[in-house]
Amino acid sequence: MGRKPNEGGGGRWSPSIVLLFVAFVSCFLVYTGISVAFRRGSSAAYYETSPEETAAIAVAGEEEDAEEERGECCRGVENLELWGAAVKWGTDFKFNTSRECCKACRDMCRGGDGPCLCNSWVFCGDRERCKEKFGECWLKKQKDALFPDLQESGEKVIWTSGLIFGKGEGIIGIETEYGTLHVKLFSECAPRSVAYIVALMESRHCAGCQFYRAEGRGHSWDDEGNHIMNAPLGPPYGLIQGTLEAEGVPFKSMPVEACPTIRRGSVAWIGSGPEFFVSLANHQEWRRSYTVFGSVLPEDMHIAEKIAHFPAKADVWNNVNVSVLEKPVHLKVKRISRSSGDLNLNGNVDSHSRRS
């Protein structure tokens, strides 16, 4: 990817370098909410893990790695408890891992065009701290999955929570003067990254956010983003690169989340952010290198392609040849809603109507 010579150690990295050392940070979700409901008690008995359960958890870990390589994830955020109407009571619904709880919710959100019966889950997976609540899996239905009801967060919270975005949900817009890139966020793969994007969206401005580097696919990839046999892998690298750091929204280095294969349309952090890129090509050679937190809808990729061909000048970042836009493209992040099944391109949602 290349790093600007005037940037510090948290700058822009080349896609060929695998991210080996990224500091994991604590949950920094900035949602606010007050709940007046209370949780039902539990009568579950404490029990030790059997050899069979231990083996099952190990197998589940291997399956999870394979699924995340394909972009099929089931991740949540620790020390976070989401509220909401329960569709499955955890006192009577238990698993050994948060992934199983997540998948149970996801299985209730595969009704084609129909609404998701479950769009959030809450799991207690620490035996010592959860005690009789260990294994409880609460499946819930949020009024707005992008802005869920928060019960509590912080180190004292014993719960892990996650979100499921169904068809037409979890879509945000990266708006530029040349058009809006509609991006489906991957809450199941990169929940902490999605939390930051939502916080950025709520700030209602993105001063300083911009695309500043742009490279077409050249003669290395075809129109579908597939690599052409015997062609070089770059430069150019087939991407547009920018930053998603705005004034007034504190940015903490992102933890590594799911790093599936980069495909055409993938939206991913560079290093630990806030630098990011939109890929115009399939980059199998960047395997497991970047946290992918969303994907541009196919019908909007022509906007990214257009930006990639704006006037640019050659530069060298960290010994990588790059193309820097002569005029950066400013952007802002906004909420996108669906009305009667269609994308509402004027999708800014008022903070009061969101909770109604």
Rank of each mutant, 00 (worst) to 15 (best):
A104T: 05
Y178P: 03
P260K: 08
G208C: 02
V267N: 07
W13G: 02
S323E: 12
C116Y: 01
C74V: 02
P311M: 10
V349T: 05
E188D: 13
K332D: 03
G216C: 12
V87I: 03
G294Y: 09
G216Y: 07
R335N: 03
K131V: 05
H309T: 09
E299Y: 13
N319A: 13
G76D: 14
Y46W: 14
R40Q: 07
G179H: 02
Y196S: 02
T32I: 04
A231S: 10
C189V: 08
L150W: 00
L233Q: 12
K140V: 04
R3D: 15
A268Y: 01
C116R: 03
L331G: 00
A23G: 06
D342H: 13
A60C: 14
S356G: 11
E64C: 15
G248V: 00
S353R: 06
G10K: 05
A268E: 03
C259D: 04
K167L: 14
C124G: 01
I171K: 05
G125H: 04
D350K: 09
E152T: 02
S26M: 12
C130P: 00
C109Q: 06
K103D: 15
N318M: 13
S295E: 14
E257T: 03
R264Q: 13
I164N: 10
F134S: 10
M201W: 07
I270W: 00
P148R: 01
P15Y: 09
R40C: 05
K313G: 11
G41C: 10
E155A: 07
C102D: 11
E78A: 11
D342S: 12
E128P: 00
V349L: 12
R3W: 14
G41A: 10
G2N: 08
I34D: 08
E136P: 00
D65V: 15
F147L: 01
G71Y: 15
T160K: 07
I174R: 00
K332P: 00
H330E: 08
V249A: 02
K167N: 10
G10E: 11
K131T: 01
H227A: 07
A246K: 06
E52A: 10
Q241M: 01
A281N: 07
E132D: 13
E245W: 06
G294T: 04
Y212N: 00
F95I: 05
G273V: 04
I57V: 14
W121M: 01
V87K: 02
P51E: 15
A246M: 09
K140Q: 14
L185Y: 02
V122G: 06
I34W: 08
G135E: 06
I174D: 01
K103T: 13
A207V: 08
G11Q: 04
M254N: 06
Y237R: 12
V278R: 03
E64T: 15
V25Y: 12
A104W: 04
K313C: 05
A60Q: 15
G71P: 14
D350V: 04
V25D: 13
S356R: 13
C189T: 08
R106A: 15
P274T: 00
N230R: 14
S98C: 08
S323V: 06
R39A: 05
R40Y: 05
K334Y: 03
V316S: 09
K94W: 13
A214N: 02
E7C: 06
Q151K: 07
R288E: 05
